[in-house]
Design a protein around this nucleic acid. Structure first.
Length: 552
RNA sequence: CGGGGCGUGGCGCAGCCUGGUUAGCGCGUUGGUCUGGGGGACCAAAGGUCGCCGGUUCGAAUCCGGCCGCCCCGACCA
């Protein structure tokens, strides 16, 4: 097909909007792909929607290929659907009422709707099932940002799998892993599958697809040797060894007047921060627990949450006094009647710890001798940590989460009574998985990874048009012929037939970023040809119009 | 929710501190002439409740108060 620029709604901008910072935000607005209508609320203009549709079609093909059945559930749902699972209290829900005052919720995900439907599954003979749809998700995000990177309404492809047993779930999960890899690869996006923290909402296992980019809200940790990738929140890096002073036979009390922070403590005692330990009293449910990490490490809230399988909060000053008999700056694991969760880094060696007496610390505190902790990996991984696979150096990069896949188990099916009769004649809850891809976010991630100072460089599979034909004065006819030839060869063509200067047309072509630019002008007309330029490489060659079809 | 910034024709900005004619500039838009391979030149023109409400004042884009919206950092985040 051929689209004529003179008739397209394609409002390109010479300058980026003042409020745009992320490259994808600037370029997609400047290129006339999207326009904002409120915080986190975006319209897709004709070009932007073409890209969106191409991504959608790639996803559709790949999910169909693993047996997915496309369907469609509504975004507007009765509130009782969410009361069934208790997720009515999730803070990002948009609540509304119909004219009769009945409560409704805008879906922010579709486990509830799909599980509701899955009650009609009766027998193991009907399993497995793989359902998916493309639908709007609405989320009352506390802070939308970065153009398409985090929004309040967006189209997600979400799949839901129903299996009779966990082996079936594992297989469905694995098939989605592979499908997602192919999807991102076809979109020309570099994305890595990493372990994610499943956090409070539980589930047995979840993995993220992270696309390294210049802007984003996630952090990808990767090994310099390419053998380990992880979400920095969940990464299992090993910290550099602690610089420890000589060991002591028993803990030794030392006065530390005026010392409040780890840095002050290390300075005061003339030791490295890594030779100290940091005690963080937290409350989960109704128990108070002391989390202990090395002085130069930070506690990973996600990891601790996963360890507890529950949310937690910092203990209050009163709770701390009551449990430790000392204030926040002098807490430690020795001689207290409190459960201690110590980070793995503290398994070996002796560290300085708070003495549970104000302004006093203990030197030479050793796990297993002076206190009995439960060990767990609860530290936040850092740039420079050692790779758990090969010992190489790990580095952190900014990334966008473009997909997330979950093994849900039976949480939703039990809530809805979505059961089936198994081979053994017993009624069992369906075993579920859910799998999401944000289309607009994928689009933004592609732009983040694929642009230069002049504009977007679309991978062909997701480009708004395959070729951009620039018609310069005096060569309108040959330009139209070129567009026709390309179109007949099966390409989607944007023909710039506007009465504009050459420079403006070239600038727009670079900005819009179609993979191929074909220019017909006086220069090329001299030998009856057109100039074909590759957007990515900038390589240009002069060809006969007739040759265009083959080239493309 | 905490911190910071911004709100003036379609876009990007100046003016505000120190209140005072018809609120400017660049780009874009419309008509015209010339031009024509990297955002060209000239002529003419259209287009603005200065975010909203209230207050101070003879007089408010400008000063004061409240509210709203948007962006960034943080908190939060399937």
């Amino acid at each position: 097909m051929i689209a004529r620029a003179s008739q397209l709604f394609l409002p390109t901008l010479r300058e980026p909007p003042a409020d745009a910072e992320a490259a994808s935000h600037q370029l997609l607005v400047r290129g006339g792909f999207i326009r904002q209508i409120g915080a986190g609320l975006w319209s897709f203009l004709p070009l932007g929607w073409r890209v969106h549709m191409r991504i959608e079609q790639i996803i559709r093909e790949e999910i169909n290929a693993i047996g997915g059945q496309e369907m469609r559930a509504p975004t507007l749902t009765p509130a009782e659907l969410w009361e069934t699972t208790g997720r009515i209290d999730v803070p990002i829900l948009f609540h509304l009422e119909d004219s009769g005052g009945r409560p409704f919720v805008l879906s922010w995900t579709h486990e509830e709707s799909m599980t509701f439907l899955a009650r009609e599954i009766q027998s193991y003979k009907q399993l497995p099932q793989v359902w998916y749809h493309f639908s709007n998700k609405d989320r009352d995000e506390p802070r939308p940002r970065g153009g398409l990177l985090r929004v309040r309404e967006f189209v997600m492809k979400d799949s839901y799998t129903f299996d009779a047993d966990s082996a079936g779930l594992d297989a469905a999960f694995a098939r989605h892993e592979e499908a997602y890899k192919r999807i991102f690869e076809r979109c020309g996006l570099e994305a890595y599958l990493v372990e994610a923290e499943s956090g409070v909402m539980g589930g047995k296992e979840s993995k993220d697809f992270l696309a390294p980019t210049g802007s984003g809200e996630n952090e990808l940790m990767r090994c310099e040797n390419g053998d380990y990738f992880a979400d920095a929140e969940a990464a299992r890096g090993a910290p550099p060894p602690a610089e420890l002073p000589p060991a002591l036979a028993a803990p030794e009390l030392v006065a530390t007047p005026g010392v409040g922070t780890i840095d002050e403590l290390a300075d005061f005692l003339s030791i490295a921060a890594s030779a100290t330990s940091k005690a963080l009293p937290v409350v989960t449910g109704d128990r108070l627990v002391l989390a202990l990490v090395r002085g130069d490490d930070k506690l990973s809230e996600g990891k601790l949450e996963t360890f507890f399988e529950a949310a937690f909060r910092p203990a209050t000053d009163e709770e701390i006094r009551a449990a430790f008999g000392a204030g926040g700056g002098s807490l430690g694991p020795v001689g207290v009647d409190v459960e201690v969760i110590a980070d793995e880094a503290l398994r070996e060696g002796q560290y300085v710890a708070g003495a549970n007496e104000d302004a006093k610390h203990l030197r030479g505190v050793r796990a297993g001798r002076d206190y009995e902790p439960t060990f767990a990996d609860i530290r936040q991984a850092k740039d420079g940590d050692a790779c758990p696979e090969c010992g190489g150096t790990l580095h952190i990069e900014t990334a966008i989460e473009v997909g997330h896949i979950f093994k849900l188990g039976t949480f939703h099916s039990q809530a809805f009574g979505a059961t089936f009769l198994d081979e053994d004649g017993r009624e069992k809850p369906l075993i579920m998985g859910s799998y999401g891809i944000g289309l607009a976010r994928t689009m933004a991630a592609v732009v983040e990874q694929s642009h230069d100072e002049n504009g977007i460089v679309w991978p062909q599979a997701v480009a708004p048009y395959d070729a951009h034909v620039v018609a310069l004065p005096g060569a309108e006819e040959i330009a139209a012929q070129a567009a026709e030839t390309l179109s007949e060869a099966g390409l989607d063509v944007l023909l710039d037939d506007r009465d504009q200067r050459a420079g403006e047309k070239f600038a727009d072509a670079d900005l819009i970023g179609c993979p191929l630019r074909v220019t017909a002008g006086r220069k090329s007309l001299e030998d009856g040809k057109v100039d074909v330029r590759d957007r990515a490489s900038g390589v240009e060659k002069r060809l006969d119009v007739a040759e265009l079809g083959k080239e493309a």
